[in-house]
């Protein structure tokens, strides 16, 4: 198991090289001169040159890249143009934790509802419950987050007054954004669990379990679900990773100050170091989540080998 973790961890290195390279090159590939943009529109030639020198843009590309990576490893992602504070502080002081909290509870909600719905559907195939749950799931997948968010605000905040409209302070603030962000995942997990369970339930080892005299409940949970979970775990991992970087819309609708809004604001203000830093952090988070998923995968499926 330890060798597995180490070997899987080593695989992260080439991925990280690719990610940093992409983020770094973004700076050079976007139209316009970064130094000009950073120095501001009214800066004269000398000021732009000074900025270029300060940013090290006159050095060879590979040197710039190595310096960028070196700084990033030491936790230096540059300074935000907009706020003049270090990018790392902007991200880690509060923003990323709010997004992680949102993504985490969204995933928890998605897993709980998705699994329950998927199991009910699969064990009662073609029943009324199955058909209705799958129709609900179809809605869950098809509804855009901004629309669902607005509808939830309209009904539960404006009309019923149960929850606050915007912000991120108490658990009450979290309810509607978490539902908004988790609904899509719940629907995907429900459908995934259903099809995976149906496939597993048709296996001879399930009949073997019945023939042994294992009770219906244990057949479903011990023999079927554990085997059916393998593809579901992958989806959950991807879902959580996507939520980390993709909470932009939900955060905007509910005016939650997470990393998604930070990125949107930074793009609007052409705050390049900020955008770069946020993308890098999200990418690293995504890679780490997938690393954990692979370990979980290994734990539930002894047959997975890195070869």
């Amino acid at each position: 198991m330890l060798t597995f973790i180490i070997r899987r961890f080593l695989q992260i290195i080439p991925v990280m090289i690719g990610v940093t390279l992409a983020v770094f090159l973004m700076m050079h590939l976007i139209p316009g001169d970064p130094a000009q943009i950073m120095a501001g529109e009214r800066a004269d030639e000398a000021q732009v040159e000074q900025m270029r020198e300060n940013l090290g843009l006159n050095d060879p590309l590979h040197e710039q890249y190595l310096r960028y990576v070196g700084n990033a490893i030491q936790g230096d992602l540059g300074t935000s143009i907009r706020t003049n504070r270090p990018v790392v502080n902007e991200i880690f002081d509060s923003r990323i934790w709010i997004t992680i909290e949102l993504a985490f509870w969204g995933t928890v909600l998605a897993v709980i509802f998705g699994l329950i719905a998927g199991i009910i559907s699969a064990t009662r195939k073609y029943s009324f419950a199955d058909v209705s749950l799958m129709i609900v799931a179809l809605f869950g997948m098809s509804m855009p987050n901004f629309w669902l968010g607005i509808m939830l605000i309209y009904f539960f905040s404006v009309n019923l007054g149960w929850f606050p409209i915007v912000g991120w302070e108490s658990w009450k603030h979290m309810v509607l954004p978490v539902i908004t962000i988790g609904s899509g995942g719940a629907a995907i997990i429900a459908r995934m669990t259903r099809s995976s369970m149906l496939e597993v339930l048709d296996n001879d080892y399930i009949r073997t379990a019945h023939a042994k005299g294992v009770s219906e409940r244990l057949v479903v949970y011990k023999h079927a679900l554990r085997n059916a979970l393998i593809p579901v775990v992958t989806v959950v991992g991807l879902q959580f990773g996507t939520l980390l970087g993709g909470a932009v819309i939900t955060e905007t609708v509910f005016a939650v100050n997470g990393i998604g809004r930070l990125v949107v604001d930074a793009i609007k203000a052409r705050d390049f170091p900020m955008v770069q830093g946020a993308i890098l952090v999200c990418a690293v988070a995504f890679v780490l989540v997938n690393f954990l998923v692979d370990i979980a995968y290994r734990l539930i499926n002894k047959r997975i080998d890195l070869n």
Binding site: D204, Y205, T208, A209, A211, G213, V214
Partner: peptide, 30 residues
């Protein structure tokens, strides 16, 4: 379930009839 003790079945596909997540010992112990 009690009666199942007296009747057992062996399936065709030896790859599909054993739960991949149980060891041989666990399969029989259950």
């Amino acid at each position: 379930r009690e009666k199942r003790k007296d009747l057992q079945i062996i399936f065709q596909d030896p790859y599909a009839s054993l739960n991949p997540r149980q060891t041989v010992g666990q399969i029989i112990e259950e």
